[in-house]
C-alpha cells in the first residue's frame, strides 16, 4: 500500500506542478497551528505556575495577601536548615534504593531470566516470573504504602509475626517507628516497588542482542558471568543509561511512599525534599520557603535531566556512527 500511494503521489505531483520544490515552504505554517492548543495548555498549567513558584521563592508569603519581597533570604535560611540538608541526604539514599539497587539487581535478574530460564525452561516460565517481579509497579503507591505499613507494623504486623514463628523473636522491631530503622525500611519497600521497571526494560533490551554473540562467546569457553559482563552489559548499555536516569529522577521526587508510610517521621528520620516542601506549603503555610525548597529540587532534577539527555544523545550518535 505504501508503495502505491508513494508512486501515485509522485506522479500526480509531477503532472500538476513541475517547478514546485519537494517540500513546499508554505506547508510549514499551517503545522504550527497544531501546536497552539498544546502551547496554551502548557503555558497555563506548567509555565505560569512554574514561574510563579520561582518568583514566590524570593518572597515571604502565607498564601493570602501580597507576597513580601525578601530576595535571597529563603535560600540563605535553607543553607542553615538542618531539616533541609537531612532531606537531601535521605534523597541520596533513595537514589540508592530506587535507582542503583534496582538497576544492579534488575540486570542480573534480566540476564538470568532471559538467557538461563528462557533457554532451559522456556520463555513462558521466564515471562511468568517476570510478571511477578513487575506486579508492584502497577500498584498505586498509596496502596503499596497501606500494604507495607501493615506488614511492618510493630504489633501484629506480618513481618514481626513471621519472625516470632521462626523463633527469631529478638529480631522483631518497630520497623517504621524506630528513627534508626525507618529510612531503611522505606528504602526496602522502594526496592520492592521499583525492581520491576529495570527488569522489564532490560529484558526487552536483551531481545535485541544477537544470540550469535552469546553462542560465539560460549564456544570460546566463556562462562555465564563472563558472557554477562562482556556480551550482555555492553549490548544493553542504552537501556541502562535510560533506566538509571529515569529512576534517579523518580527517587528525587519520591513523595507518596513517605506520606503513607511514615509522614516523614519519626522525628524527621524519613524526611525527603518533596515531603518537606509539601508540609512547608500546606501545613506550615510558609509558601515562600516551600517554594524555595521545591525550586532547589527542580534545579537539581533539571540539571540531571539535561546532563543525562545530552550524554545519552552523544553516546547514541557515536554508536550509530559506528553501526552505520
Amino acid at each position: 500500500m505504501t508503495v502505491t500511494v508513494e508512486r501515485g503521489g509522485r506522479a500526480v505531483r509531477r503532472k500538476r506542478d513541475p517547478h514546485r520544490p519537494r517540500r513546499p515552504r508554505r506547508s510549514r505554517d499551517p503545522y504550527a497551528l497544531f501546536l497552539l492548543p498544546g502551547a496554551l495548555a502548557f503555558l497555563a498549567v506548567v509555565v505560569v505556575p512554574f514561574l510563579m513558584n520561582t518568583g514566590v521563592s524570593f518572597t515571604e508569603w502565607q498564601g493570602v495577601g501580597t507576597p513580601r519581597w525578601t530576595g535571597l533570604a529563603n535560600y540563605r535560611e535553607l543553607l542553615d536548615d538542618s531539616e533541609f540538608w537531612a532531606s537531601f541526604r535521605h534523597s541520596l539514599l533513595m537514589v540508592v534504593a530506587m535507582a542503583v539497587v534496582p538497576t544492579a539487581v534488575g540486570l542480573v535478574l534480566a540476564a538470568a531470566l532471559f538467557d538461563f530460564v528462557g533457554r532451559h525452561f522456556g520463555t513462558r516460565t521466564a515471562s511468568v516470573l517476570r510478571a511477578c517481579f513487575y506486579l508492584p509497579q502497577v500498584l498505586p503507591i498509596a496502596v503499596a504504602g497501606i500494604v507495607w505499613s501493615w506488614i511492618l507494623a510493630p504489633e501484629n504486623g506480618a513481618l514481626n509475626e513471621l519472625l516470632s514463628v521462626l523463633h527469631l523473636g529478638s529480631w522483631q522491631r518497630d520497623w517504621l517507628g524506630d528513627p534508626d530503622l525507618a529510612l531503611y525500611s522505606v528504602m526496602g519497600v522502594m526496592v520492592w516497588v521499583q525492581l520491576g521497571f529495570p527488569l522489564v526494560v532490560f529484558m526487552a533490551g536483551l531481545q535485541r542482542v544477537d544470540p550469535q554473540l552469546h553462542e560465539a562467546a560460549e564456544l570460546d569457553g566463556a562462562g555465564w558471568w563472563r558472557r554477562f559482563r562482556h556480551v550482555t552489559l555492553p549490548q544493553i548499555r542504552p537501556e541502562i543509561h535510560v533506566v538509571l536516569l529515569w529512576c534517579t529522577i523518580a527517587a528525587l521526587k519520591v513523595f507518596g511512599a513517605v506520606y503513607v508510610l511514615t509522614k516523614g517521621g519519626p522525628g524527621g528520620a524519613t524526611e525527603v525534599p518533596s515531603y518537606f516542601s509539601f508540609t512547608t506549603f500546606f501545613e506550615k503555610t510558609q509558601v515562600g520557603y516551600g517554594a524555595a525548597v521545591s525550586t532547589v529540587l527542580t534545579v537539581i532534577i533539571l540539571a540531571l535531566a539535561v546532563a543525562g539527555l545530552r550524554w545519552q544523545t552523544r553516546v547514541e550518535d557515536a554508536e550509530e556512527g559506528v553501526a552505520r
Binding site: 498549567v45 520561582t54 513523595f255 516542601s277 521545591s294 532534577i301
Partner: peptide, 8 residues
Amino acid sequence: PQEALVYP
C-alpha cells in the same frame, strides 16, 4: 517535579 507546580 510536581512540587514546583503544586502551590501555584
